[in-house]
Every structure is written in C-alpha cells, then in structure tokens.
Write a protein that binds this DNA or RNA. Structure first.
Lengths: 234, 234
DNA sequence: ATAACATTCAATTAAATAGTTGAATGTTAT
DNA sequence: ATAACATTCAACTATTTAATTGAATGTTAT
C-alpha cells in the first residue's frame, strides 16, 4: 500500500466513503440519523443491532467523515456531519432504482399495490408545495414521535400506524391527506396511505421524506424538548 | 441473510453501489470511463492492473449497475450506464474534501503551490462560461488524445504535458489560457498551468473536468474516428 | 477448420470486514 | 469514594474481498 502514489492514496480516502455506505446496517443508521440526532442505545434498538455492533458501525461511519459524536451526560449523541449526505443517499437510491433490476423488484414488493384500489399518487416536492400553498391539504407524519418532535413539515400531524386506526375521526374525509415518513424507501407512509384509502379517504403520498424536505431548504417546524429522549417505536 | 426483511434486502442492494465505489482501483476505472468508452485492455493499462484484475473489477462495477459492456469485434467496450454517476463521484469528492482532514492534506501535496508563483486561480463552471462568452480565452485540454477526440470543450486545443513544452509558441501570451483535464482531482491541468505560469503565460485552471462540463449539458465538440483505439498516454 | 487474440472464469492465497463476548473506560448519581 | 450505567475496546471466529495464475470461451482472420 505504501508503494502507491498520491492519486491512489486520494482515491483510497474517497473509497472509504463508499465502503462506509457499503453495508446495509450502516445505511439504516444513516437513514435514522438523517431524521435527527440519536444516542447509540436508540440506534442499536432501531436497527436491531447489539450495542457493541452498533458502536462499531458508528465508528466506521465516523472515520469516513459521515457522522460526528458529542457527549451528552453519559450517553453519546451521533449526527450527520453534512447535509450533503442526504443528497448522496438520494443519488444512490436513484441510480440503484434505474440500473439494478433487483431494486425495482424489491420496491414493488415493499410497496404492493392493492388490486382493489387505485394506485397511490406519489407527489413530488414541487407538487406538494403547490398543494400546501393552495391550502387544501392535511399533512400526516407517520414517523415515531421522537423524530416528529425533532422536526416535521409545517402543520403536520403525527400519528404512528398503530395510533392511526384510533384517531380516524381526526382526519378530514373531504380534503386531501398527504402521508410522508423517513424517505423514498420507507414503507410507513405507504402502509398508512393504503389503509386510509381503503377506508375512503382522499390520500396521496409524498415521494420523499422529511430529510429531503429539510435539505431542500423548505420550512420546517420543531417541538422543543429538554432531552434527546422520546417515544420510541420500531 | 435470508431471515431479514425486504427493507434490509433493499439496503443490501443499495450498499452494493457503495461497495462498488469503495475501492481505489474501481474509482480510477470510473474516472476513466467518465471520459469515454474504453476497452478492457486500455483500462488495465491506464489503471496499472493486470487484465484479469481489471476484468474482475469491471464486472464488480457492472453488477452494481454502474457500467455496461458491448462487444466490439473481439474486444469488450465498457461505459458508464448513467450520467448521474458523474454526480455521485462529485458528491463523494465534495464530502470527502470537507469532512476528511487526510483528503485536504493529500490535495495540498498533489497540487503543491510553488512559493515563487501566485497561487493558481480555479475557475468555476459559471466563471468559465462567462469568460468563454467574452471570447478572450484559450482552452487547453491536457488529457490523452483518445479522450480529447471522444469529446472536449468547444474550441479547446489538446496538448499533453510532454507536448506542451514543444508547442509553447502556439499559445498566446497576451490572452488568458484555461487548462482542464479529467476532473477536480486530476493533477494534469495543475501541472500544465504551473509550467505555463512559470514561463509568463496568463493561465487559470478549470476546477472541474470534461465529464462535469458535459454532465451540466454544456456544449461539447467531438472528433470522429472509425474505432475506439487512439493514442494512449499514461 | 484453425490459429491468434481479448476477455472471462476457476481456483488459490492473503487481507479486510462483521459479529460476538466479556473486560475496560469515563461519566453521573448516591 | 463508590456504584450504576452507556459506550468503547480487545480478542476471537466466520465471511467476504482482492490479487494471482493458468485454463476456458468466443470472436476474427487466415
């Protein structure tokens, strides 16, 4: 390794970023950290990893320059170093979707179309902004409460899939509902939208998620909290 | 591996792209393929790999959906599947540069500033377009002839570093020269620019390279050739 | 048909990576 | 000070990846 030249060393450093995003568990961690800062314990829980394993993956991501840590009491809070990492993940998703047949196949399984219903409409960012400006839309955030509290689309209401069935009456039947969640490959909003559609609601799905919205510089709302802890759903 | 869920499988497929760009030799191959279509033999030569090794790396990139092959006689010609791969590499470079200290250190070694000269000006795409429209600029493409022939900036002249010293008289002393090469981390244009600057030319460097220019949809010129073969410089 | 050639495949070895377990570190609360 | 706790480290095993060598494949030119 030492006998190579500067350009090779430079590519070796760039390749480190590739390797960092080259593992499904680490992609999961990055998706979570794209929503908000999280403690190791929470990340381990949400990504079904042991603490030691999560810690090691987080350090791998840190060495690649994708995340940083700060100490908060006796816990370590990780977050993305850079908003451009949202763009990076988005670009990888786009390339994968158009160039890897397996991805398209998995997506159609993950987002199955109920044959009895009309296929869900996926709204682009621009279309959603337009509908919001027109004022005739209810935004439904299907992410865990902790992520909603850390930041959400203006005026959105937060109901998990489980809560949704209990609070159907708080949703308008005569107005369009737009569901969103963590990002384009997060199934939560799709499930929520299908359930609502089957019950006769006018529902659409935002094709991106909160991180992409925020990254685009569009307005967001936050609920203040004293600590990082918050309700956790899987 | 079979006991995991759809979302994990999807992330596994996305991670494949990460692993594909997670190796310095493969990044080199992608940089070359961002310039033009190339045969395996040429890629092996240009990246200092054995044929077998180059072939295996190329197949790795192909499985990840980043490149495709076509047969041309008894040779196999590889090319990028997707223009967005230029964006992906650019984004990785940007993130690496701002988040990995080692990268900044390596760059200052790769692009050393001669203490006797004023530091080279790096022109952005927009600035270069502006200067070209004003008409007072000579474009110098320092890449190998084969890459120049496959596509270059409008009106550019092609001189390799070696040729440059022989043809100094074909360059104007009273007008600004802008040198460019393969991309932001390619040292050719920097070396050329420093050499010219030391000889009293008014010289600037385009901060991107041909692939980024083409990717931005800006006009390019091509020299027609009957075959893929062409002059090869390392 | 056959020889020459470019590339890929198969088999091997060496190196890097991921997951597991239990001990070590550093902080907070008592 | 000491105990409790969150996280990291160290050591180990299993898996994956990279490079090398030589054989196999498929195309072109004779």
């Amino acid at each position: 390794m030492a006998e190579f030249n500067l350009e090779h060393d430079l590519r070796e450093a760039l390749a480190g970023i590739g390797r960092a995003i080259g593992q499904p568990h680490r992609l999961r961690l990055l998706e979570l950290l794209a929503q908000r800062e999280y403690y190791v314990e929470q990340l381990a829980e949400l990504s079904s990893l042991t603490m030691a394993s999560a810690s090691q993956h987080l350090q791998h991501l840190r060495r690649a320059g994708l995340i940083t840590v700060r100490r908060d009491g006796r816990q370590m809070a990780y977050r993305l170093t850079d908003e451009r990492i949202i763009d990076l993940l988005g670009l990888v998703r786009q390339i994968a979707r158009s160039q890897i047949a397996e991805v398209e196949r998995l997506l159609s399984q993950l987002f199955p179309n109920d044959p009895d219903l009309t296929p869900l409409v996926a709204l682009s960012q621009a279309e959603l902004v337009q509908q919001m400006e027109a004022g005739q839309v209810t935004l439904l955030d299907v992410r865990p409460g902790a992520e909603f509290e850390a930041g959400h689309l203006p005026g959105a209401i937060n109901l998990s899939l489980a809560e949704l069935e209990q609070h159907l009456d708080s949703l308008p039947k005569d107005q369009s509902i737009v569901a969103y969640c963590r990002g384009p490959y997060c199934a939560l909003s799709h499930k929520a939208a299908q359930m609502l559609q089957a019950r006769g609601y006018q529902v659409q799905r935002f094709e991106d998620g909160f991180p992409e919205w925020k990254r685009a510089g569009l307005p967001i709302e936050t609920l203040q909290r004293s600590s990082l802890n918050g309700t956790q759903h899987p």
